[in-house]
Design a protein around this nucleic acid. Sequence first.
DNA 1: ATGCAACTGAACTCTTGAGTTTAACTGAAC
DNA 2: GTTCAGTTAAACTCAAGAGTTCAGTTGCAT
Lengths: 244, 244
Amino acid sequence: MTAQPAPGAPATAGTDAMPAPGTPAAQAPAAGSRPAPSGPRAARKRQAIVRAARDLFLREGFGVGMDAIAAEAAVSKVTVYNHFGSKEALFTAVVAGALDEPLTTGPEGPDLAGLAEATDLRTALTEAGRAWVRAVRADDEARALRGLVAGELHRFPELGRAWRAHGPTGHHPAVADALRALADRGRLEIPDLEVAVLQLYSLLVFPQMVFEQYGADLGDELSERLLTDGVEMFLRRYAAPGTA
Amino acid sequence: MTAQPAPGAPATAGTDAMPAPGTPAAQAPAAGSRPAPSGPRAARKRQAIVRAARDLFLREGFGVGMDAIAAEAAVSKVTVYNHFGSKEALFTAVVAGALDEPLTTGPEGPDLAGLAEATDLRTALTEAGRAWVRAVRADDEARALRGLVAGELHRFPELGRAWRAHGPTGHHPAVADALRALADRGRLEIPDLEVAVLQLYSLLVFPQMVFEQYGADLGDELSERLLTDGVEMFLRRYAAPGTA
DNA sequence: ATGCAACTGAACTCTTGAGTTTAACTGAAC
DNA sequence: GTTCAGTTAAACTCAAGAGTTCAGTTGCAT
């Protein structure tokens, strides 16, 4: 369906090795891109393009046409190609941009830092977990983004690294810190931190993600049971003997 | 994407809804279509086509060309279209066929039935879990199939149902039976069976699947720690008081 | 108020890939 | 050994989509 440009450089004139005579393409060879439009107007256009592209990519998938994107952005197709040299580049920019936003750690993200000070650990963990699950389940945009990138990953191996860094592994430090703080305070007893972190993920958010991948959705009610029971399980395993 | 059929000729079958799960009636282009080729030779050709298509779909994704598939099957493209009316139909047939094979419950699948009789529950569970994880991790074909279908799911919503039925939810009955049997024998104490099943999944196989979706892979060593520790956690939560 | 860079719109090129046609060619059934 | 559905190779149609060209327009700065 998507007409793959021949592997290599389909863009202006020949490959990078042979600059076409007459074309002012000799600029900005540094990062491997043409001269990027600048100025206040250009910035507006660029933003409009990225917004439109993100909307359409998320809604329709990578297969959406550049004409549609340009139309949605109320911008000429040429402008799109002046800013981003190719569809791939645009896609990459969109995903990279989305990655910078507070996506996975949404506005309702779990309060990991405050966990160590909580008086009632079970309640605090449940609350944090609930926020976490909600962030994973309810954020349709993030959900679509996950599916989109996962599905198109083979086409963009470079994106894989950045993507992974913002994926589950990206949270490790924060979660690990929270658990370590609890262990240091003597409230948890964790022999293997790495495993504990993964288990917390496993019990709380992975079920959501896996079912989502299969196009299914655990209901609100089952999600809640899974949450409270998951916390229960985690605490039974790791709660320090003193803390009932 | 799909080119319009010649003016006058009604589309050949097109995306036909999948038959009920379990019915391997892959062909039979139902309403108003050409007859499906039959005979001993046709059967051979058909099999060759499906095999080639599966290989290429799994290796290259849905984007692979019909010409390539025909070539790989050592068959004329027309023959492909005589058997399956469209690329979509072929894809559907391939996935449906793969679903019927012992995929997820591979040859090395976990011995769920024998779990209840095991003398050492922890060891038995660990062993079964190990087989399970191995089936999930090592089976490249199943892995590719998961990624393929997940990525192309939006294009084949009908496939979603059949797919889901063979996904994690598809195992529920077997796992649930095993756990119930253990509960009946008084070796486990499970207040919420549905949750317990999901938790077992969560602790043992979901981490593998999630990381795989992100293009990453937990190592052998971490997988093993996760396994033994997951079993530990599960038993601490559900082991009946009497059974140390 | 002028100049340039960025933008527009529309027509254009080029490639790819799905599906079809045709005429000649099996191979299995009778 | 005729027959006919099934098969083949190759040339074909058709649509769509990426990327480009170009002649003209517009925003922004000096």
